[in-house]
Design a protein around this nucleic acid. Structure first.
Lengths: 198, 198
DNA sequence: GTTACTCGGTTAAAAAAGCAACCCGGTCAA
DNA sequence: TTGACCGGGTTGCTTTTTTAACCGAGTAAC
């Protein structure tokens, strides 16, 4: 099933994970600006140049978790079964994320996850960089949807919807509610939003 | 206190330990000839050339634990306090090893240690290589003792004594007795042997 | 009696990592 | 105002590791 991973690939992935995990846990502990890249490199037991070989900027040390979902929307559209409309496929995918309490839907009450979201949303440079990721995502989705202004508009709207839904869910959880408790209204919100898109 | 270990040195040491540990545990499990160097490299998650960069031959994967004590006798003689005769210093050092149940004295009943000794003593190529290590050790000790045939003879005798004592202890433990039980007679054996050397 | 393994060990080239030194913009103090 | 740090990144050079291919000896199959 899984590709025949050589030693090289396996170790690279491990190093990447080690850096990312060390970074996030330090950030959650002392805040984005309270941690230097030197600290992270030391914690991950790698050198500074190596760190920057894996992550181009300090921000990416946080956002790689979003970056890993990069292009997901476009993929969902491309891989949909024939006869299914793009928006429907995206709707179902989001719904599945909700049911699985996927962190990207905002519907996850693990303390670490909610702290992580707070970190991202309350650190300006991170929020800024995040929107850049979302723009790239939007372009990819637009390409998957077709050409012309119609596709671009729809892509923008879909991602805007997802963004709002995720933030809404996260906000409710940040206010102290549990994911299971919020789940029903998250579903109806999503149904309503996606239905309006059609 | 401890040397300023850079990343490089730290990782090298870890890699070496990983290889050595993987090798020994596989050998104990399936015997020296039941394990290929490829198996060991795979278990240690390194490539075959890397393995041979750390250990020149397959035998050394086992014997590095002895190699780590290489030159110890010579060092004991050189570092003895003034007024102490070499044989006395070596005697006291061996006695201290006995009291600390140092594996090199054979007086250690940890299952892993006794299995390890059996592995070494019952695998011809290992036993052969081990005597080569002991010869080097002997030369170093001879140099520490002085020059001429006198020093060489004494070095050979001291190491022969230690070898016999260690094997005797190990044999008793291999027969099922505990190290603590064997300890008193190990001490009297050592006292007798070293006294005869003077 | 080839052929085709396996196993210990080596080689050459290329990828990756380490190290030290550096650039640039900020900040704080003399 | 200068000068000395510290922060995020970068640059070159060296060391380490992976990879794939190979050698030479043994050995089992046909």
């Amino acid at each position: 099933m899984s590709e025949p991973t050589g030693l090289r690939a396996r170790k690279k992935e491990r190093t990447r994970d080690a850096i990312g995990d060390a970074a996030v846990s330090l950030f959650l502990e002392r805040g984005f600006d309270g941690v230097s890249v030197n600290d992270i490199a030391a914690a991950a037991e790698i050198s500074k140049p190596t760190l920057f070989r894996y992550f181009p900027t300090k921000e990416d040390l946080v956002l790689h978790r979003f970056a890993d979902h990069q292009g997901e929307a476009a993929r969902v559209v491309r891989d949909r079964r024939s006869g299914i409309k793009p928006v429907t496929a995206l709707h179902r995918h989001f719904r599945a994320g909700l049911d699985g309490y996927d962190p990207v839907t905002g519907l996850n009450d693990h303390p670490e996850v909610v702290a992580f979201h707070r970190l991202v949303f309350t650190t300006p440079s991170l929020a800024a960089r995040l929107t850049r990721y979302q723009l790239e995502d939007e372009e990819a989705l637009a390409d998957a949807l077709g050409e012309g202004i119609q596709a671009r508009l729809q892509a923008a709207q879909v991602l805007a919807v997802q963004r709002v839904l995720a933030r809404t869910n996260w906000q409710k959880i940040a206010d102290g509610r549990t994911a299971r408790d919020v789940h029903p209204e998250a579903v109806t919100d999503a149904d309503q939003a996606f239905n309006q898109l059609r």
